[in-house]
Amino acid sequence: MTVSKRQQTQTRLAYLLVLPATLLILAIYIIPILFVFLGSLTDYTLVSDYYEFVGFENYRQMFGDEVFANALNNTFFYALLFLPGAFIISLVLAIAIQEQKQFRSVLEVLYFLPVTSTLAAMALVWAALMDSGQGVINNTLQTFGLPRVNWFGNEDVVLYSLAIISLWSIIGFNMVLFLAGLTSIPKNLYEAAAMDGADHPVDKFFRVTWPMLGPTAMFVAVTSSITAFKLFDTVAILTQGGPDRASEVFLYLAFLEGFEYFNMGYSAALSLFFLGIIFLFALIQAFFSDRNVHY
């Protein structure tokens, strides 16, 4: 077989190999995204097949809608509660666990356990633990002379409760990422730092650990932010957005509009907004991961 002939069959084979995946990517990603965009310009509802193009009316409605503003508010407030914890607690845990000698692997497993579980199922356990009446948490609070908390019934508390559950489920994951980042810091940098006089824990952290952890920290921050914006499961199972829309977060609102009220056009606009936010985070990450590579 000549080289060019071989090349030809190879190219033909290549097309054959990518064909199924390409078709499916078209069917599952590209065409639906186009339809989401087109749909967001219509007043399509699943209930009636009649629809017309309304231009950017859906977007105008979105930015004027109190319900949307409320959902966005809730999402950001929840993210504000969730992100610092998801970042700082995980980092502190990773550093503390890394310095443990005998117990390191035991602790790693214990903290990682929630990550391996199905959040939908564990949400029910949390609901029982956080039960305002006979839940273990309120009983414990009472033992210490603290007031009982209506974890899911109080509008001012419900986002804290959801944030606690989410933190519980993600800390182990972020901790493992940080641990991987910490382990990959060359040991001799700490030794060089010790020779140079930076042997105080504070110096070690600010001179070596923190700067060297940069890319990992950025990754954790971005993936946690996306996770925060994707809050859905616990809301759907535990609160359904209540009480009085106090826990109605962005993705849950989009779900309601699309699949409960069948406002497909409006829901499509919400979806695109959501995609915009995700893209933004992806861009931030791409930007920083280029900048933060050292060697």
Binding site: I31, P32, F35, F232, L251, S267, L272, F274, L275, I278
Partner: peptide, 19 residues
């Protein structure tokens, strides 16, 4: 396209897929 599609979650394409 593959890279771009990685960032697209199911929540965004669910409506047309459902329809």
């Amino acid at each position: 396209t593959v890279i771009a599609a990685i960032t697209i979650p199911i929540n965004v394409t669910s409506i047309p897929l459902y329809i």
